[in-house]
């Protein structure tokens, strides 16, 4: 579904991706794990063309998006939905306008139909009666749900999640994890989730890829990763200070 070949990306002198290769399989949830500031969000942004690599290619459904012009890239982006780390809801719009935004931009549906679709998507993410609220009136968990409703409203094939449970309490984290699993199953989506929440890793993911020093150093099912004899993977999954990952 998404293939990344020999991806390189630097910001100034800092090398973030260093010859990264990864294949995201269709119809399942792939979780990308790695330490904070290790380039996971940068990797996710390459998948949807928000960042262009210094070299290498990103192939989505057989098409290389790194060589596309803006118009073709926009067409490809319609296959995607994305939930941002802080939800990235538009401050100046209420919940209804936020979720309806892609429908009003890209379809000619009547307002009554748009309102019905928005209500349905909000119901899917466990929210109702919040259509008129502004983002500033919502809790962190509610914002993420609205962000997910907005990501799903155009019925995308692929949904990208950038640290969906960061900053949430354990109960809300569990609720969001379950929502991701249910959504993936119900809509048969291809999901890519970035996280360093160890609990999420084993409840949400069909496959896991570990990013370390700009490369994918291990990839497999959650069980395969648990059995991995790679010292970096072992240290990360154990959450230990001892090992090749240095904190200082």
């Amino acid at each position: 579904m998404i293939e990344l070949f020999d991806l390189h990306k630097s910001f100034g002198k800092q090398k973030v991706l260093d010859g990264l290769n990864l294949t995201i399989r269709g119809g399942m949830t792939t979780m990308i794990i790695g330490r904070s500031g290790g380039g996971k969000s940068v990797l996710l942004k390459h998948m949807i063309g928000l960042l262009r690599p210094d070299s290498g290619s990103v192939v989505v459904c057989g098409k290389d998006i790194t060589r596309m012009n803006d118009r073709d890239l926009n067409e490809e982006r319609k296959k995607f939905g994305m939930l941002f780390q802080e939800a990235a809801l538009f401050d100046s719009m209420n919940v209804l306008e936020n979720v309806a935004f892609p429908l009003r931009e890209h379809t000619k549906k009547k307002d009554s139909e748009i309102r019905r679709i928005v209500r349905d998507r909000l119901y899917d993410v466990g929210l109702s009666g919040v259509e008129e609220k502004m983002p500033s009136e919502l809790s962190g968990g509610m914002k993420k749900r609205v962000g997910l409703a907005r990501a799903l409203v155009m019925q995308p094939e692929i949904v990208l999640f950038d640290e969906p449970t960061t900053g949430l309490d354990p109960v809300m984290s569990e609720a969001i994890d379950r929502l991701i699993s249910d959504t993936q199953r119900n809509f048969n989506l291809t999901c890519v989730v970035i996280s360093h929440d160890l609990k999420s890793i084993f409840t949400v993911a069909h496959r896991i890829a570990m990013l370390y020093e700009g490369k994918i150093i291990a990839e497999g099912t959650p069980d395969e990763l648990k059995q991995s004899d790679n010292d970096v993977v072992k240290q990360f999954l154990k959450g230990s200070l001892e090992g090749p990952i240095s904190v200082m």
Binding site: L50, E75, R77, F80, M82, E86, A88, F90, D91, E105
Partner: peptide, 18 residues
Amino acid sequence: GTMKVTEQIDALYVMASN
């Protein structure tokens, strides 16, 4: 500027809007 740092501008790109 606030929209940029809170990724709202990226969200517009993701929703295929300029």
